[in-house]
C-alpha cells in the first residue's frame, strides 16, 4: 500500500470519527477506525510495518486532536507492533482471529492510554474508564472488525470465482 493510500484512509477515518460517527455512538462511545485499520494491516504485514503505520496514524490523530502530541502515536505504535508480533502465532484462516485481535488491541489501547495519561497531567479513574469507555469501545471496534473481515472474505472469494471463470 503506498503512503498516499495510508494518508487518504487515515484522513478519511479521522473525518468520519469527527463527524458521522458522532451520530452512531453506542453507549456513549464511538469506534476507532484507525485502530481497526491498523490491526488488519499489522496482521497482514507484521510487527515492523504495524509499528510504523501505528506511529503514523497515532501522530496524525495527535495532530488533529491538538492535545498531547505523541500520546496516540506511542499507543498505536505499541499496539501495531504487538499485533504484528502476534501474527505468526495466530491462525489467520480463522475468521474470528482478526475480530478477537481488534478487541484485545482496543482494550490494550485503552489500558495504555490510562497508563500514559498521567504523563500529560491527566488522571482518569481506572474502574469506570474500563467499564464505561474501554470495554464498550472494544466491543464496538470488534463488531466493525467482524463486518470488515466478512466483507474482506466475501470479496476475496468473489474475486477468486471471477478469475477462475475468466481463466
Amino acid at each position: 500500500m503506498p503512503v498516499v493510500a495510508f494518508i487518504i484512509t487515515g484522513v478519511l477515518s479521522l473525518i468520519l470519527e469527527a463527524t458521522v460517527l458522532q451520530v452512531f455512538q453506542v453507549a456513549g462511545v464511538k469506534p476507532d477506525l484507525l485502530l481497526i485499520l491498523l490491526c488488519f494491516y499489522a496482521l497482514s504485514r507484521g510487527a515492523k510495518h504495524g509499528a510504523v503505520l501505528g506511529a503514523f496514524y497515532g501522530l496524525m490523530e495527535d495532530l488533529y486532536l491538538c492535545r498531547f502530541l505523541g500520546m496516540n502515536a506511542l499507543i498505536k505504535m505499541l499496539v501495531g507492533c504487538g499485533v504484528g508480533w502476534g501474527r505468526d502465532k495466530l491462525n489467520l484462516e480463522n475468521p474470528w482471529v482478526p475480530v478477537t485481535v481488534v478487541w484485545v488491541a482496543s482494550v490494550a489501547s485503552g489500558f495504555f492510554f490510562l497508563l500514559f495519561a498521567p504523563l500529560g497531567g491527566l488522571y482518569y479513574p481506572w474502574g469506570s474508564s474500563l467499564l464505561k469507555t474501554i470495554f464498550p469501545a472494544a466491543l464496538y471496534n470488534a463488531s466493525l472488525a467482524f463486518l470488515g473481515e466478512s466483507l474482506k472474505r466475501e470479496g476475496t472469494e468473489w474475486l477468486a470465482n471471477r478469475r477462475s471463470l475468466g481463466g
Binding site: 473525518i15 469527527a18 486532536l65 482518569y124 469501545a137
Partner: peptide, 9 residues
C-alpha cells in the same frame, strides 16, 4: 464543524 474523534477527550 467537528467533534473530537477520540473517546477520551
Amino acid at each position: 464543524v467537528a467533534r473530537s474523534p477520540s473517546n477520551w477527550f
